[in-house]
Nucleic acid binder design. Structure first.
Lengths: 185, 185
DNA sequence: GCGTCAGCCATACGGTGTATGGCTACTCGA
DNA sequence: TCGAGTAGCCATACACCGTATGGCTGACGC
């Protein structure tokens, strides 16, 4: 009774979060349960609740850290079309690394709506570079993000061809569409 | 024992589906459970399984019928820009009528990928009208649909302003973006 | 020595989807 | 008319879920 079930170091939030991400990567959002997570950590399910308020908060946490850690290409002085393309590519790559996580994130957008995220500042910078008038920057950014979300969700959920070459073409078409659309303003 | 719990007419698939939709409208995807649905129909939970294979099949069913019943504006001979706008508007309106349902649908796109749907034939027609070369029609259609999905999901999930006027502006910007993007090809 | 508290855990509650099997009431062929 | 078969429904049970409650242990400050 007095024994901790778990041998070794005490539980940490960090450890909880990374195992949760692993479980999601392996088995999707539905593959992550507090009980499985606990058993994976060799710990009683209720122990998790000393580090995390509840499951939703845990999901929010790992989504937020994923969003914060997203690598955004720096301003290299190239034309906005190129930079927008690179940003979209980076976003895409990021999402494909943890599909389930980004799938959840895109259906709970409040997680990513925090405007301090590198994603947003990069996007806004590029939109300004493209000549989008200041009062329209945020709206336009939201819409572009929604578009890319849709594209990525469709891909994650299998509503896209399997052939990687075909996907590449889809991606090119999509980015072209967006760039042309922006250029037309 | 011999008594049916439920008085009156026997259960029908139709009835099951419509109450399921109602429950989803009222309380979201998570508000729909086989047990609640059964109790709403004054029936034992297991009775549902004589009409539906399982919950997923039920969801698929109601999504599919919603997609089939979607009202698509007819070809009125107006320019493709106008028609595309109208189609997007119709889609938007449809989705807002049953937000939870369309939220689910957009995260399970296999449901809507059936190419016989009015949505797809209308979209393809308009794309051809816009001069999209035949081998690109389907790809372009998929991408546009993904974009609109993203926009609508963002709206459904609250990642858009509340002010209806602002939403309208967002919508206009989005459609403009798409139309400009297409026109640039 | 004593109180406080962080960390962990056992138990329990109410919810979920659904497998299994049994009961009725009907239809249909002989 | 009489079985056989079957469609429809239901009772029970299982395995799983998130988490409220409350209790234990061991470290720390006084």
């Amino acid at each position: 009774m007095a024994e901790r079930a778990r041998r070794g170091a005490p539980l940490t939030l960090e450890e909880i979060a990374t195992t949760a991400v692993r479980l999601m990567d392996e088995a999707g959002v539905e593959g992550l349960s507090m009980r499985k997570l606990a058993s994976e950590l060799d710990v009683n399910p209720m122990s998790l609740y000393h580090h995390v308020e509840n499951k939703e908060a845990l999901l929010k946490l790992i989504c937020a850290t994923a969003a914060e850690r997203m690598r955004v290409p720096p301003d290299d002085g190239s034309p906005w079309q190129e930079q927008l393309r690179e940003l979209a590519l980076a976003y895409h790559r990021n999402a494909k690394e943890h599909p389930a996580l980004w799938g959840y994130l895109h259906t709970h957008p409040e997680v990513i709506s925090h405007r301090g995220l590198p994603l947003w500042s990069a996007l806004y910078r590029i939109l300004r570079l493209a000549g989008v008038p200041e009062p329209e920057v945020r709206r336009t950014g939201d819409i572009l993000h929604a578009f890319v979300s849709g594209f990525i969700l469709a891909e994650i959920n299998g509503h896209m061809p399997d052939d990687p070459e075909e996907i590449e073409r889809n991606y090119d078409t999509a980015v072209h569409l967006i760039i042309n659309g922006l250029a037309g303003f």
